[in-house]
């Protein structure tokens, strides 16, 4: 199983490795969600959805379905 942002636990950090263009909106890229950037899980709502992330200093929340598309490596 590939590790994705959706698998992070609170406070854990990872480096974004890859994602598919067809499933991840451009808007997310524009907000700084790019391969090579560090992502940290700040908070989750109940059922871990949506997820509140800190990507290289940019704070945003996305739904779990999107988080599942962003592959990471833990650091």
């Amino acid at each position: 199983m590939k590790l994705t942002v959706a698998h992070l636990i609170l406070g854990q950090r990872g480096i974004i490795t890859d994602f598919s263009v067809d499933t991840v909106p451009l808007k997310l890229l524009e907000m700084g969600c790019l391969p090579g950037n560090i992502v940290e899980l700040v908070q989750t709502a109940p059922f871990r959805d949506p997820m509140y992330l800190n990507i290289n200093g940019c704070h945003l929340a996305i739904r779990k379905e999107t988080a599942l598309q962003i592959e990471i490596e833990l650091i």
Binding site: K27, M31, V42, P50, C58, L60, I62, R63, T66
Partner: peptide, 9 residues
């Protein structure tokens, strides 16, 4: 439209 929301300070 995807759900992406910025969490401003």
């Amino acid at each position: 439209s995807y759900f992406v929301i910025e969490m401003p300070s």
